[in-house]
Amino acid sequence: MPSSQTPPAGSTALDPTAIRPAIDDARIIRTSPAALRDELIALRGAGYAMLSDVGGVDYLAREPRFDVVYHLLKLELNGARAHRVRVLCGVPGVEPVVPTVSDLWPSADWAEREVYDLFGISFSGHPDLRRIQMPAEWEGHPLRKDYPLRGPARERTPRPSFALKSNVAAGTPAAGKTAAALQRQIAAARGQATVGSAAADELAAEPNAARGAQLPKDGSK
């Protein structure tokens, strides 16, 4: 359940990668799309033969907005010892484009497609850049921070969604109401002053009321 408590203002970091604690999990290199390929080719020359992961992060308020994160692995002594490198490539939010590395490492193929699918970051030179997790005709890039968790279709419906479908709840006063509306209803029943307008209930309840009307009473579909 999303947290109803918010942290004090100013206590969250805009760029966590800049102020990270001293954890020795990987050597960290920060680069830009223009310098990315040279950086990775140099690392491959230095023995980092495996590109173990390509992922994306959306920092929303930071400039550049996105980070494409590459993790590389160097194996020594036939794998008995290993070293990790993390390459962070900052990508701007407007027209995000990064050169592909799928010609250098075949492992990047699907990983870059996934970053494209979920963040909308294009990889120039990728042989087959299309959606991989979402259906081909899906609109929007779900893992972006401005994409609603429950998707645009269900964004403003109240939770939990089974209350909308249940043939029992459809007949009850609670069905299709937002939490605020229920509070007003309770306050009104107690004879207390209500805050907010009843019009807001209607607005939120409208799509759900229409849904409720379509529900057959015997529960069959």
Binding site: Q133, M134, P142, Y147, P148, L149, R150, G151, R154, R159, P160, S161, F162, K165, K221
Partner: peptide
């Protein structure tokens, strides 16, 4: 009903 995954990716119940 969608289970623990009340998000964009999961259909909230196969009875839809």
């Amino acid at each position: 009903s969608g289970g623990v995954f009340d998000n964009y990716a999961v259909v909230q119940g196969v009875d839809t």
